[in-house]
C-alpha cells in the first residue's frame, strides 16, 4: 500500500512503445517504476536515446503510454477522459529544453505567459490575467520592460525564464523539466538552476528533472533515477548514488564525467566500451550486458528485476547483492 500523502507522482510499470513498421516495435520506455515525494525533485539521467524525454512526456500523457499506471495524487490518470485530463493539466506542467523553439515567435513575452491563463479560463477578465502575468514575470526575474518584446529580441536565458513563467502560470503542483538548462551557457545555467530551486522552496513544487548532465542533476535532485535503454537501472537518494553507485552502468557514467579539478587528472578513466544498442525489439536479458564488465550468462538471458536493496535504493542488476 502506497502512502498517497507522501508521494505526489508515481508510475507503475509504465511502458511507451512505438511501432516502427515491419511489425517491429521501439521500446522507448519499458516498465518504469518511479515515486516522487511531494515537494521534492527526482532527477532522471541517461544518455541520448535512453527514453528519458519520452518518459517525461508519457507521464503528462503528451505521448499516450502503451501500458502501466501513472498515479498523480493517488489518481490513475491513464484512465481519465480527455476533458478530465484537461482540467488536471493545470496541475501538471512542462518546461522544455529549447527556449528557442518552444515559444511562439509571433507572440510577445506577456502574451506567451498569458496564454495558459486564458486557455484554461483561470481569470474572468483579461485585465486580471495580465495582472497575474506581471506577478509571474517578477517571480521569474523578467523585467517589465521585456513584456512587449518578441522571443527573438531576448537572450536564451531570458527565454527560458519565459518558459518557466508559462509553466508556473496555472499554479501547478508538478513540473516536468526536460533538459531546461542544456541549451544555456554555464553562467546562465546557474542562474536558472537557482531560480528553479527557489521556486520549489517557495511554492512546494515537485519536479521530474530530466538531464544528461550529472553535475546538474546532483545539484538539484533529492533522488536520482538512472535510465538505460528505456529501463530504470538504479534509483537512490542523490548523495547515495554519487557516493555508492551500485549498478555498473551508473558507475561507468560517473567515471566518464571529466571533473573540473586537477586531482583526478592523472587518474586513468575507466571507460566502458561499445555503444548503446538499439531499442527496437531488444533482446531478452539485461540491456547493459553487452557493455558490462561483470556480465554473466544469466545477465544475457534473464532480465534483472528492479528491487530495493536498502531503504530507497533500487537497483536492477543480478550481480548486486
Amino acid at each position: 500500500m502506497t502512502d498517497h500523502s507522501k508521494y505526489l507522482m508515481e508510475t507503475r510499470d509504465l511502458k511507451t512503445y512505438f511501432p516502427v513498421g515491419q511489425g517491429k516495435t521501439l521500446h522507448a520506455v519499458d516498465g518504469i517504476n518511479l515515486r516522487i515525494p511531494r515537494g521534492q525533485t527526482l532527477g532522471v539521467v541517461g544518455e541520448s536515446g535512453c527514453g528519458k524525454s519520452t518518459l517525461g512526456r508519457s507521464i503528462l500523457r503528451l505521448i499516450e503510454p502503451t501500458d502501466g499506471q501513472i498515479l498523480m495524487d493517488g489518481v490513475d490518470i491513464t484512465k481519465l477522459k480527455r476533458s478530465e485530463m484537461r482540467k488536471l493539466r493545470t496541475d501538471m506542467q512542462i518546461i522544455f529544453q529549447d527556449p528557442y523553439s518552444s515559444l511562439d515567435p509571433r507572440m510577445t513575452i506577456e502574451d506567451s505567459i498569458a496564454e495558459p491563463l486564458l486557455v484554461n479560463k483561470i481569470y474572468k477578465t483579461k485585465a486580471e490575467a495580465y495582472a497575474r502575468v506581471d506577478e509571474l514575470m517578477e517571480t521569474v526575474g523578467l523585467a517589465q520592460r521585456n513584456a512587449s518584446l518578441f522571443p527573438h529580441e531576448i537572450s536564451g536565458g531570458l527565454r527560458q525564464r519565459v518558459g518557466i513563467a508559462r509553466a508556473l502560470a496555472t499554479n501547478p503542483k508538478f513540473i516536468v523539466c526536460d533538459e531546461p538548462v542544456s541549451a544555456l551557457d554555464v553562467s546562465i545555467q546557474a542562474q536558472i538552476l537557482n531560480l528553479l530551486m527557489d521556486l520549489q522552496e517557495q511554492m512546494g513544487l515537485t519536479y521530474l528533472f530530466i538531464t544528461h548532465d550529472l553535475s546538474v542533476v546532483k545539484h538539484i535532485s533529492h533522488n536520482i533515477a538512472v535510465m538505460y535503454l528505456g529501463q530504470c537501472v538504479e534509483m537512490a537518494p542523490s548523495n547515495e548514488i554519487f557516493r555508492e553507485p551500485k549498478h555498473p552502468y551508473t558507475q561507468a557514467l560517473l567515471d566518464a564525467i571529466p571533473t573540473a579539478s586537477l586531482a583526478t587528472r592523472e587518474r586513468e578513466l575507466k571507460i566502458i566500451r561499445g555503444e548503446v544498442a538499439s531499442p527496437i525489439d531488444p533482446a531478452p536479458g539485461c540491456r547493459f550486458a553487452a557493455r558490462c564488465p561483470y556480465a554473466t550468462e544469466r545477465c544475457r538471458t534473464e532480465n534483472p528485476v528492479f528491487r530495493e536493496i536498502s531503504p530507497d535504493h533500487w537497483v536492477a542488476c543480478h550481480e548486486v547483492q
Partner: peptide, 24 residues
C-alpha cells in the same frame, strides 16, 4: 571565478550556485 562558481561541483556539497549576473 564566476565560471567556476557556476558549475555544480560533484565532490563537495553546495546549496546554491553563485552565478555571474547578467549576460555577455
Amino acid at each position: 571565478m564566476g565560471l567556476f562558481g557556476s558549475i555544480p561541483n560533484l565532490e563537495t556539497e553546495s546549496k546554491r550556485l553563485s552565478p555571474i549576473p547578467g549576460l555577455m
